[in-house]
């Protein structure tokens, strides 16, 4: 019913939010603000430390320069190799352990809610503990060194790898799987010939992405005794040899970039 003539003109209102919604939104912003103020108070920033932060930072860089490149062949090269081996072996172990768990979690493979949940629990449990904490644990069990670091990387990576692998398995098209079942293929043959070819690209991309992450993580595991570059960094820092610490940081930076380039190249070749 649109009234005729300007006298009866009916103005239609539109508002994105109702009154209640606006109140709730305002309340939300106020709560966030209170949260920020509260957090700042509880972390007790000491203003004096804040004021000279720029000088301290500049001072650090000055002390790092010139970088002690001579230290590379003596200690850092071996540490770098250990870090790469830790990351690689850790990733291989992680993929090997995550695959059965992923199969347990994927609902199109394991048709049991109980088994799905058990698998999911393993994934969450391994992932929610940081690699550093796992390293502390394995250092306590096996003593400091690359073994502890490798196991820390491997166990922590199960959650991530298993989660994404199980999702890739669940995304496999049901048609080909059905076709193989209809041909009388046993479950293992369906897995190898029906599901695996569909999951393979995601599997390889995932393993490489996790390796990329693990190179970064294993570089610092040495700080808690996990071997590799972190160990060298720890030595340099406790001796206050800043030029050597600078070398280790430069090497970590370099290897992370190289790993990134390598994995993105390899990924583009697979997909």
């Amino acid at each position: 019913m649109i009234p005729a003539g300007p006298a009866g003109a009916h103005v239609r209102h539109w508002q994105r939010f109702t009154f209640t919604e606006r109140v709730m939104r305002s309340l939300f912003y106020i709560v966030v603000l209170i949260g920020i103020v509260w957090s700042l108070q509880s972390i007790e920033i000491i203003p004096e430390f804040l004021y000279d932060a720029p000088q301290q930072t500049a001072d650090l860089f000055v002390r790092m320069w010139p970088i002690d490149w001579g230290w590379y062949p003596k200690v850092v090269h071996a540490a770098l190799m250990e870090t790469l081996h830790t990351a690689t072996l850790g990733t291989i172990l992680a993929v090997a352990m995550a695959t059965p768990v992923a199969l347990l979690v994927a609902r199109n493979v394991t048709r049991s809610v109980l088994l799905n949940s058990i698998g999911r629990f393993i994934l969450v449990a391994t992932r929610s503990v940081h690699a550093m904490i796992w390293a502390l644990f394995f250092v306590a069990v096996f003593g400091p060194g690359a073994l502890a670091g490798t196991l820390a990387i491997a166990v922590h990576s199960i959650g991530f790898t298993g989660k994404f692998l199980s999702e890739a398995i669940e995304e496999a098209k049901p048609g080909p799987i059905e076709a193989l079942k209809a041909a009388g293929a046993p479950p293992l043959a369906v897995l190898i010939k029906g599901i695996w070819p569909q999951v393979k690209p995601a599997f390889l991309a995932l393993a490489m992405f996790r390796w990329d992450i693990n190179v970064r993580e294993s570089a610092v595991l040495g700080l808690v005794g996990g071997g590799g570059l972190g160990m060298a960094l720890d030595t340099a820092l406790s001796n206050l040899y800043w030029d050597q610490a600078g070398l280790v940081l430069a090497v970590i930076f370099g290897i992370v970039i190289v790993a990134e380039i390598a994995t993105s190249w390899a990924r583009s070749r697979i997909i």
Binding site: P176, E178, G184, A189, K193, G194, P201
Partner: peptide, 23 residues
């Protein structure tokens, strides 16, 4: 099948050979 249901990333001959998976 209506949607053929081939395993797309396998070769044609291997798709035919999947007919033997029951044997």
């Amino acid at each position: 099948f209506q949607e053929y249901n081939l395993v797309e990333r396998l070769s044609v001959i291997e798709n035919v050979l999947t007919g033997r998976l029951g044997y």
